[in-house]
C-alpha cells in the first residue's frame, strides 16, 4: 500500500485543459434549444456504440478517460445502457449486420438525444465504403448531430465533438 500511495503522490495530477467546442463539426442545426442545453449541458451520459469500426476509434475513446484527458471531470460519463444515455457516440462504418442493433439502440435512447459519429468511417464510410455488408456513414442509418473525422480522431478531437454537441449553437 505504501508503494501504491507513493506512486500516486509522485505522479501528481496529469490532467490537461479540455478543448473548446468547434462549430465546424456540427452536422445538424442544433435541434435542442438553449434552455434544454442549459440543464443538459455538462452532466452528460454517453452510450458508446461500435457499429462496425476497425477498433482504432475505440482505442481513442478509451483514452478520453485516461488521466491526461479525464473526460469524467467535466461531468461526462459513459453508461452501460442506452436507456440511461443522453448521447450516442457511434463508430463504424455501420456494418449491415449492426444496422438493426444501432437503430434499436437509438430508439431505446430517451428523447431529447444527441448523436456524435466518431472517425472517418463513421463520417463517410472511410476505407470500407458502402457495400453489400456496409451501410457506410452513420448518418445513413440514424440522424447525426456532430461528426468528428480522423483515423482515428485524437482524444482531444473526440472530446471536442462531444462538447460541440452539448454547447448551444453559436450564430
Amino acid at each position: 500500500m505504501y508503494q501504491l500511495l507513493k506512486q500516486i503522490a509522485k505522479v501528481g495530477i496529469k490532467t490537461e485543459a479540455p478543448p473548446d467546442a468547434d462549430e465546424r463539426l456540427r452536422v445538424l442545426s442544433g435541434e435542442l434549444d438553449a434552455v434544454v442545453l442549459k440543464h443538459f449541458g455538462r452532466a452528460l451520459a454517453i452510450r458508446h456504440v461500435d457499429a462496425g469500426s476497425c477498433n482504432g476509434c475505440e482505442l481513442e475513446i478509451h483514452a478520453t478517460n485516461s488521466p491526461y484527458y479525464n473526460l469524467e471531470r467535466l461531468g461526462i460519463k459513459f453508461v452501460a445502457s442506452p436507456r440511461h444515455a443522453d448521447l450516442l457516440l457511434v463508430t463504424g462504418p455501420v456494418s449491415r449486420n449492426m444496422e438493426e442493433a444501432l437503430r434499436r439502440t437509438y430508439e431505446a435512447t430517451p428523447d431529447p438525444k444527441l448523436v456524435v459519429s466518431i472517425g472517418d468511417c463513421a463520417c463517410d464510410g472511410g476505407v470500407f465504403g458502402e457495400s453489400y455488408a456496409s451501410c457506410g456513414r452513420v448518418a445513413n442509418v440514424i440522424p447525426v448531430d456532430v461528426a468528428v473525422p480522423g483515423c482515428p480522431p485524437t482524444p482531444t478531437a473526440i472530446m471536442q465533438g462531444i462538447l460541440t454537441a452539448v454547447s448551444p449553437r453559436r450564430k
Partner: peptide, 27 residues
C-alpha cells in the same frame, strides 16, 4: 456483427491501395 466486406473490398483495389485497408483489418 462487424462483417463489412473487407475481403471483397480488396478485390476492387490495387496492391498499393490495399495497404491502407490491410492496416484497418484490426486497428
Amino acid at each position: 456483427y462487424k462483417h463489412k466486406g473487407i475481403e471483397k473490398r480488396f478485390e476492387s483495389m490495387t496492391l498499393a491501395e490495399g495497404a491502407r485497408l490491410a492496416g484497418r483489418v484490426s486497428g
